[in-house]
Amino acid sequence: MADSIGAEHIGLILHPANITSGDLQECYTAGARLVRMCLSVTDPDPGLRYVSEAREMGFTVCVNFTRASRLDARSLVDLSSRSAESGANAIYLADSNGSMQPGEVSRRVTLVQEVSGLDVGFHAHNNLGLALANSLAAAHAGAAWMDSSILGMGKGSGNLISEQWIAHLERHHTDPGAFDLGALLDLSAHLRDSVPESTPVLPHTDLLLGRFDLSVEHSARVSADRRSQVHVARELGRVAAA
Rank of each mutant, 00 (worst) to 15 (best):
S4A: 15
G6N: 13
G6W: 14
H9R: 15
L12Y: 11
I13K: 09
A30F: 05
A32P: 06
L34E: 08
L34V: 12
L34W: 07
T42E: 10
D43K: 09
D43Q: 12
P46F: 09
S52H: 14
S52I: 05
V63P: 02
V63N: 00
T66D: 09
R67Y: 08
S69W: 00
R70V: 03
D72L: 06
R74Q: 13
S75F: 03
S75M: 08
L76E: 07
V77L: 08
V77P: 02
L79G: 03
S80W: 02
S80I: 02
S81G: 15
R82F: 14
E85G: 15
G87H: 04
A88L: 07
A90T: 12
A90G: 06
I91P: 01
A94P: 03
D95M: 07
D95A: 05
S96C: 00
G98F: 00
S99I: 00
P102K: 06
E104N: 11
V105I: 14
S106F: 04
L111R: 11
E114H: 11
G117N: 12
G121L: 07
F122G: 01
N126I: 00
G129Y: 03
L130F: 03
L130S: 01
A131T: 05
A131E: 00
A138D: 07
A139F: 09
H140M: 13
H140G: 10
H140E: 15
G142V: 10
I150G: 02
G152S: 12
G158V: 02
N159P: 05
E163F: 07
E170W: 09
R171V: 03
H172F: 15
H172C: 13
P176E: 09
A178T: 13
A178D: 15
A178V: 13
F179E: 12
D180T: 12
G182M: 08
G182R: 13
L185C: 08
D186W: 08
L187E: 12
D193G: 07
D193H: 07
S194E: 10
S198A: 15
T199K: 15
T205S: 07
T205A: 08
T205R: 01
L208D: 00
F212T: 00
L214Y: 02
V216S: 06
E217G: 10
E217H: 09
H218D: 07
A220D: 11
A224T: 12
D225R: 12
R226H: 14
V230G: 00
H231K: 08
A233F: 01
R234W: 04
L236S: 04
A241E: 13
